[in-house]
Design a protein around this nucleic acid. Structure first.
Lengths: 244, 244, 244, 244
DNA sequence: TATGAATGAGCGTTCATTCAT
DNA sequence: TATGAATGAACGCTCATTCAT
């Protein structure tokens, strides 16, 4: 992972290019590799998410990707490789949308809320895929597992930045940023992991509201809390609409 | 699960008797069934936790349980049944220790801290088993999955009670108890789920301290917060030692 | 291989017990293992000899052995293991019959002829199996290949003994016994390896006669040659009939 | 193969032109066909010899030949065709060098020794390729197998001629030339087939010496033997140097 | 009740061969 | 002529489950 400075806007989503170097393919045409990998990964994410890694067969992935089973092995060496590609793709999804949403949002608390809301909505659109990361990372060989962990940490960095900004602005206490970030991340993932529990009692947007309120209380300085309570409505307002 | 009132102390750990009615065995001698199931479940938890459900074979479970492969099918109809037994056993572990620890602790904040610390320490002793629940619940048929969810909710009730008590005592705000409880639970599970991340930077006890501090800030009334800050040291003190 | 003294009669055929320690089986009942292995090896030798190692599928072996494909893997870890078992069995066949035939034959030249004839006849009854050793040994992992080589050297020892006796009796020159033995062995194997060439022009018995004559000329001392030419008829006579 | 009379010197090495008529290629440019086939055959011999026919993939051959996998199918209809080409090429190697070496050698025993030595040295330079013929001929369809056999018999003819000359010169007994020739050929092949056995105890040159001595004893008339023993040194001398 | 040998369906993976370009 | 992406049949092997003892 590269060192980054400034806000997370600076970061570009690099997609699964990252892994092109990890999971070798036999083919050489770069565009074709990209296209085929996309077919395979899309099919794999869908199936792995629904059925799990072990219940999904390579033939099923091939069928859904509209290619032959053999061809998968031109673009991944093993079924585990396909899983890695799939997991990294899921993690990349988190990174790819949020920075865009943050553009133009400057007020620290608003930035945090926007980032958090963005994550939650992406997770909400990919519930099974999010759970998949928790279910299946251990099915990966150790080395590849590290890649997934790094991918996760990288995605979290977007949240970490906004937390840091809130602290700098004296809105948040001088807490351990890493610890606080992980609390926020776990909360977001909770929406997927415990969806069976929350689904009957709230939707994403109310979940976002409740969560944000909860964590502002956990993190805010007295001044920050007052600030938050005054602006609560306006914070919720402009960003409450999901992107799509 | 039945409704319960009063403190969680009233609850008895019922162990895996719960499932005896769900997972039929061919054997009739009650004691023998219990003993055999314990052998099987202990072996299964160990192996599933380490290798995962699909990578563990029935023969391996049998070997580790010092029985024949065939005998497993006298006490469970399918491998999935064994998984259910294993998962319920893990969840039951959470319930079995905490109530004892709470005995005699009356001050609400202390009770919450004690319960939380107890959970964390149990999770810490069963890291892989905790992760197992997240990894493998979906490998269960729908109906059995519900049992696991219920088992989890039941375990959470211990925490919920203490949260409720804190609210009653005006130490905590009038928050949504269920939501708050799940935040606490996710935090506890985070110790297992993100152990690879936290291990290098903290141990269970510091994790408990940080977590408790974090969530008291999130939940406390202004009065509650002041109360907490005065007593911080004494809260940590007496209970900081793991039961061992 | 163990050191041996005296004539090869002293040696007992140990069959595939040798390899029981090399190729682990899952089963424990010794008799059953023996019986199953015999089924498998017999089927395998037949099929490998006819079709070759790679053209023969495990399913075919199973079918011909009247067991399921899966069961083969209770008695051998890989298809290569089955090949090893098969090759060792073939080599063992050479050893198992000859010593018996030699019993009671004391005259050195007669012993050599008897041993050579016995080998030839066994090879003749197992033409494809003999060729199999040449075709398929290289399909084995290095370590197992050594076992086959050792098995071959062991079998050759029977011939080597008789050559040594002829030298001791001053019937043969003081040649390099190992070299001479290998010439004799290659001659025997030639009957299988070049059978397509010899079949139209001779049968085993004439092949044995020609070969013996050829090698006596190659090895005999002047005295030995004279002795041989006087007794030619009687040497051929009594032993010409295959044991059947 | 056509009947031939006179010495083998008269014979021209015809290379794999022989098979051009058997293994059809789609290409028409004669020179290109030759060049491509050479690329393919060289790669195939190398790989087949090292890894065996079944372990070698067409893609590997293509890679080593610096052409595409598809192109192989312009010059051979099946992988078996490539094998045939490879085996015939190996056999042809035997024929291609020996006649040259024999030029100018007139004394019959010297001719035999020269031919035998030449064969041995070629085999020594192509140990795996020689073994390949034994391993893989059976992988060929019946009809093509006959071509290989004929190729072998043709190569042997060089030896047969020299044996015949020795007999004519009354140096050798009136033995069955074909039988004797095959003994000599098997001896030569033994150097490859049993190389694992002989390698630690002799090199090609000592092998040639021992072999020649052995077979002269087997074949010589009393007069021939005396003649040989007188000239032993000079026979060995001039030809003992490998062509390099 | 307990064993463990036996089954066989099903999976991941390979690779000879084809064919559009 | 030459490519190499694509196919898909076929194989070795695993393992949940059964059942005779």
């Amino acid at each position: 992972m590269v060192k980054r400075s400034g806000t997370s806007d600076a970061r570009e989503s690099q997609g699964i290019t990252v892994d092109a170097s990890q999971v070798r393919s036999q083919a050489s045409d770069v565009d074709l590799v990209k296209r085929r990998r996309k077919q395979i990964v899309d099919a794999a994410v869908e199936l792995f998410a629904r059925e799990g890694f072990y219940r999904t067969t390579v033939q099923q992935i091939a069928k859904r990707a509209n290619i032959s089973a053999g061809l998968i092995y031109h673009y991944a060496r093993t079924k585990e490789d396909v899983l890695l590609l799939a997991l990294l793709h899921v993690l990349d999804t988190y990174r790819s949308e949020t920075p865009t949403v943050l553009k133009g949002v400057v007020e620290p608390l608003a930035r945090l809320r926007t980032a958090l809301a963005s994550f939650c909505r992406i997770v909400d659109k990919n519930l099974d895929a999010t759970v998949l990361v928790y279910r299946s990372t251990k099915s990966l060989p150790l080395e590849q597992r590290e890649l997934v962990k790094q991918g996760e940490v990288d995605a979290n960095e977007i949240i970490a930045e906004t937390v840091r900004d809130c602290i700098k602005a004296k809105l948040f206490r001088e807490v351990d940023v890493d610890f606080a970030t992980y609390q926020l991340i776990m909360n977001i993932h909770m929406w997927a992991l415990k969806h069976w529990h929350f689904k009957p009692r709230m939707n994403v947007e109310t979940f976002i509201d409740e969560s944000f309120d909860f964590f502002v209380h956990a993190l805010a300085t007295p001044r920050g809390l007052k600030y938050y309570q005054q602006r609560k409505a306006s914070l919720r307002g402009p960003r409450a609409r999901p992107a799509k």
